[in-house]
Simulated scan of single mutants.
Amino acid sequence: MSIVPASVKDWQDFNRLAEQQGWDVPDNELSFYPQSLNSYCYALKSADRVQGFVTAVLHGQTAWIGNLIIDPTFRGQGLGGYLFDYILQQLWKAGAVSIWLTASNQGRPLYERRGFELVDEMVRLRVNGTGCKNAIGQLCAAQLETLYQIDCAAWGESRTAMLSHLGRQGRLVQNQTQTALVQFDSLGGIIGPWYAAEGFPAADIRLVEEAQSLFSRETELVCDLRASSVPLAAFAHLGTLTQSENVLMAVGDRNGCSLDSMIALASLGSMG
Rank of each mutant, 00 (worst) to 15 (best):
N105P: 05
D151W: 11
W100E: 09
Q35P: 09
M162F: 14
V230M: 12
Q178C: 01
P72F: 11
I87F: 01
A63E: 06
L172A: 11
M262W: 15
A56N: 03
L225V: 06
V50G: 00
Q51L: 13
G80I: 04
A227P: 03
S229M: 13
M1F: 12
G156S: 05
R226C: 11
S39H: 03
R168T: 08
G22T: 01
Q243D: 00
K9D: 14
R226S: 05
T146C: 14
G131H: 11
E218N: 11
Q143R: 10
V173E: 13
V230N: 01
G272Y: 08
M271K: 14
Y40I: 00
F235G: 06
A103H: 06
I87N: 00
G137K: 06
F215C: 03
L30D: 00
A236V: 13
G199C: 09
S244E: 11
L238Y: 12
I136R: 15
G80W: 03
R254G: 01
G107F: 09
R206K: 13
A180K: 08
F84T: 01
A6H: 02
V222N: 08
S39M: 02
F14C: 00
G252N: 03
Q12R: 11
V127L: 11
Q183F: 02
L207C: 12
Y42A: 04
N134G: 14
Q178V: 01
W194Y: 15
A154N: 08
A233V: 12
C152N: 14
S216V: 07
L166K: 01
L83N: 00
P26F: 04
A142L: 13
G269Y: 00
L181S: 02
R75G: 11
C257S: 09
Q77L: 15
L91A: 08
R124C: 12
Y82G: 00
A161D: 14
P231H: 09
S7Q: 07
Q212A: 09
P26M: 01
G156R: 05
L268F: 13
M1Y: 10
Y195N: 12
